[in-house]
Nucleic acid binder design. Structure first.
Lengths: 172, 172
DNA sequence: CTCGGTGCAAAGCTTTTGCATCCGC
DNA sequence: GCGGATGCAAAAGCTTTGCACCGAG
């Protein structure tokens, strides 16, 4: 699978950001950490810790689970990765750099996660922050939903249709 | 601690709702299930599974953890209890009956959870449901925030101040 | 060289499961 | 009495921790 130039560019950028973060926080720049960052920015889908661990293995770059956890903490703290809990007990992660703010709709039938943008979410954050005298650092909005009756026969198919809406919405 | 008449009334109502739910779903009406429901509606705060298990123990009504999990599933399914994941790996629960829809702001410093209402959340759910051809069954919006600089010295105190806003907001 | 990071395995926690017993229906 | 629910304990997952070794600074 050939990497297009845009992916390469993003990888360089996140690498620089991560380096700056590590230096600022007096953390060591280990090859494992960069390998994990690179792997994460090689696929744009959501993932959990174990999936990432397996991917690293398939790539023939062995890291231990402890290192994966450790590095993910750093990446989340640096703002390069976002952490989510979609109602199960396992955490899910996704790239954070270069993505506009978005939230998630989780299909309760097929567990597929779709993304959407609505500027009103940001407005609510701002309003509530002011009202309650807090600085909102981040948020998560999850909509749990099932396909409409006319789509219900084929949930995955409905999911595919949705991608269209989502891409429009996501890029728009 | 004396139960005021309002709490007694709510307990009766949720008991009836639960009974109807159990009958509709051909589930047995066991004393353990009612005892757990009663315990939950005896305190209006959030709780996790273990806290509830301990409370039952202190009440000298022993149930096993397995039963607590089982009953919570039923209560969530019946709509009498809401389940939340506030970013940790343990699930949190709260009463759902008699509470208007609300969302949560979590203080990242003291982990205190505050409630707020904003009708725009419902509007977003509706909009996205229509756009994506889904029926949104429920949602969760969590704002993760820290107190403003002028409150930072005493996070718990700031939390107390907030209760005022929240009560206004909550009842308003 | 030093000290923090890594790898491995063990331990910790929450949640689920299997099975014998119990009890609602 | 039957079949589902409970209780207990064991097991299963995910995550954290302890310790020896390695390697970045």
């Amino acid at each position: 699978m050939k990497q297009d130039s845009r992916v390469v560019k993003v990888k360089e950028e996140v690498r620089e950001i991560f380096t700056a973060y590590l230096e600022k926080n007096k953390q060591r720049k280990t090859p494992e950490r960069y390998a994990i960052l690179d792997e994460i920015y090689s696929h744009k889908d959501h993932f959990d810790v174990d999936a990432l661990y397996i991917k690293m293995k398939n790539r023939n770059y062995h890291v231990s689970r402890a290192t994966v956890y450790n590095t993910l903490d750093l990446l989340v703290d640096s703002g390069l990765v976002k952490k989510h809990q979609f109602g199960e007990n396992t955490s899910h992660f996704e790239q954070a750099y270069g993505y506009k703010q978005h939230d998630h709709l989780i299909c309760v039938k097929c567990k597929k996660v779709l993304e959407f943008c609505d500027p009103r979410v940001q407005q609510i954050s701002t309003t509530m922050g002011q009202l309650l005298h807090f600085s909102v650092t981040h948020h998560s909005l999850h909509l749990y939903a099932q396909p409409h009756a006319d789509d219900a026969g084929n949930c995955h198919n409905c999911g595919n249709n949705l991608e269209q809406y989502l891409t429009e919405q996501h890029n728009g």
